[in-house]
Amino acid sequence: MQPLTRVEGRAIPLGLKNVDTDIIIPAKWLKTISREGLGAGAFEVLRAEPGNVFDDPAYQGAPILIAGDNYGCGSSREHAAWAMLDLGIRVVIAPSFSDIHSGNAVKNGILPVVLPQEAVDRLLEVAREGLEITVDLEAQTVTTPYQDRFAFEIDPFRKHCLLNGLDEVGLTMARGEAIGAFEASRTAAQPWLMRGTAA
């Protein structure tokens, strides 16, 4: 995955709450066995509405999306993150995210930024003016040309992975010995737990 340190650019002022992953990418697009090309189906239902923010020339290619509460709720489909990435979105700012989707986003180099509703409302105003917003992951801040400055929290491990574009699978495979030791103690104490389909 691509490292993410600082993103500067215009922001798509969606603002809607409870944007579910069926909205981000409907099920009919999930039949693919690849991660590519899902941008074509991204936000399809919203894009069918005339005057929608996604097709507004003012926000073309904007790397930041601003949404309402509970962004990415519903289905666990990582296709939602792949679709957003395909649209060029690298940062989503919202008052809250679904647990699964925010994890999927980070694993694809997309930064979920949680800010209070008032801050999100302010950023929506700035975005609607077509002005650029700066998201600095290192400093954990979102800033605007009006000198607004909002600090955000992020789990240190996620930050580390995003800044360095790390492959979690590789990191964990390096802990194979610790996992093996855990498995050995389980096999001794509770062998039935380790049988699974071989029971």
């Binding site: 666990s76 990582e78 699964i100 999927n104 694993k107 789990d155 491990f157 699978v169 990191l171």
Partner: peptide, 20 residues
């Protein structure tokens, strides 16, 4: 609990997940 495809890969490869 539900997981994304990157985590599916993580579980297949390591039988673990990194979680908060």
């Amino acid at each position: 609990f539900g997981i994304g495809t990157s985590e599916v890969e993580h579980v297949l490869a390591t039988q673990t997940l990194l979680l908060q």
